[in-house]
Simulated scan of single mutants.
Amino acid sequence: MNKKASPANCGAALIMYFIYAQTFIILLLRSFVLYVGKRHIQGQNIEWDKTVRFKGRDI
């Protein structure tokens, strides 16, 4: 058996994956609640900031 694929490493990888997945779900729900709150409850328009990618060139 490969030492890199030990049960401890596989367990750690599974724990990290599920923590990542749960964090993504939490952030997704948080952004949705903020969007609904600003857009529908407060009536604000949501604007996106445009990143300037090239210096000296209007996009």
Rank of each mutant, 00 (worst) to 15 (best):
D49E: 15
I41R: 04
I46Y: 01
I46V: 07
I41V: 15
D58G: 14
V33H: 06
G11A: 07
L28D: 12
C10M: 12
F18A: 04
F32S: 13
I41A: 07
N9M: 00
M16A: 13
F24S: 13
I15N: 09
Q22I: 12
P7G: 07
N9V: 01
I26N: 05
I25E: 02
I25Y: 00
F54N: 07
F24E: 14
G43D: 05
I25Q: 09
A8H: 05
I59W: 14
R57Y: 06
A13E: 03
V52H: 13
M1G: 13
L28G: 11
S31P: 02
Q44K: 11
I41L: 11
V33Y: 09
I41G: 00
I41H: 04
Y17V: 02
I26K: 00
K50Q: 13
L34V: 03
M16L: 15
V36C: 10
V52N: 12
I59A: 13
C10S: 10
A8S: 07
L34E: 12
R53P: 02
Q44W: 08
K55M: 10
R39F: 09
F18V: 01
I19L: 13
V52Q: 12
F24V: 13
M16S: 13
G37E: 00
R39I: 06
C10T: 06
M1L: 11
N45F: 11
K50I: 04
T23I: 15
F18Y: 05
A8K: 09
D58L: 13
T23Q: 14
R53D: 09
G43Q: 01
A13V: 04
Q42N: 12
L34K: 10
R53W: 01
F32N: 11
K50A: 14
Y20A: 14
L27K: 11
K38C: 08
T51I: 08
I19M: 02
V36G: 04
Y20F: 15
S6A: 01
A8I: 00
S31L: 12
G43I: 06
G56E: 03
F32D: 09
L28Q: 11
A12N: 04
K3F: 00
S6N: 02
A12S: 12
A8E: 10
R39W: 04
L34S: 09
Q22E: 13
W48M: 12
Q44A: 04
F54M: 08
K4T: 06
I25S: 07
L28I: 15
S31A: 14
V36I: 12
I59T: 13
Q22S: 14
G43W: 00
C10V: 00
D49Y: 11
L29C: 15
